[in-house]
């Protein structure tokens, strides 16, 4: 439904250049105004410092190769790993297997990216199981920042928690009722 007296109804038309001229007249009050203005910086101006390096392509001085002492997945759009790479969290378990599958497809495909998202969700479950195996219990109060929300948005936090609790209770009751009905029907 359209809002009455919306902001676009309240502003005057024909003001754009008047405001711009007024601002430019007081440009001295705006620190740095016009200091980096460049009439050549139109859309055709090359932001990159074009020096022909693109056409040299492979003839650049490469850094030494970082030793490949762990599993690094790489895009099939390049021949191998880059000279340096991150060593955080190598692929592991079921999520790792899903990631290996994803990296068989190029970055142009939905299969690549959506499979990686799936792997991330599986990884979250894997992470919780690993935590439990190491005796680390989930602590949403701290790890989800609920402590901060309690301090700064208590009403919203209580409202959301109450809504979630109500929905969960309603869901459980509904399931129980369905189960009971099924049992009664099967006993007839």
């Amino acid at each position: 439904m359209l809002m009455k007296n919306a902001l676009e109804d309240r502003i005057a038309a024909g003001q754009d250049r008047i405001i711009a001229q007024r601002n430019m007249a007081r440009a001295a009050d705006i620190p740095g105004w016009g200091l980096d203005a460049d009439p050549d910086n139109d859309p055709t101006y090359p932001m990159k410092h074009s020096n022909g390096a693109d056409h040299e392509r492979l003839n650049y001085e490469k850094a030494p190769q970082q030793p490949l002492d762990m599993e690094i997945l790489h895009s099939i759009e390049r021949p191998g790993v880059t000279r340096v790479f991150g060593t955080s969290t190598p692929p592991i378990g079921l999520s790792g297997a899903i990631r290996r599958f994803a990296y068989k497809y190029s970055e142009a495909t939905a299969t690549h990216w959506m499979t990686l998202i799936l792997a991330d969700r599986v990884d979250t479950i894997q992470g919780k199981l690993t935590d439990l195996m190491h005796g680390i219990l989930p602590n949403p109060w701290v790890e989800r920042g609920w402590r901060a929300e309690w301090k700064h948005n208590r009403a919203g936090f209580i409202g959301r928690t109450a809504t979630t609790a109500l929905l969960l209770t309603a869901g459980i009751l509904l399931l129980k009722r369905k189960k009971k009905n099924k049992y009664q029907l099967s006993n007839r």
Binding site: K62, A63, I72, L73, H74, S75, E77, R78, G80, V81, T82, R83, V84, F85, G86, Y103, E107
Partner: peptide, 12 residues
Amino acid sequence: HEANPEATAVGG
């Protein structure tokens, strides 16, 4: 071109 093995569209 030499910082991210996983994605060619993204830098390191």
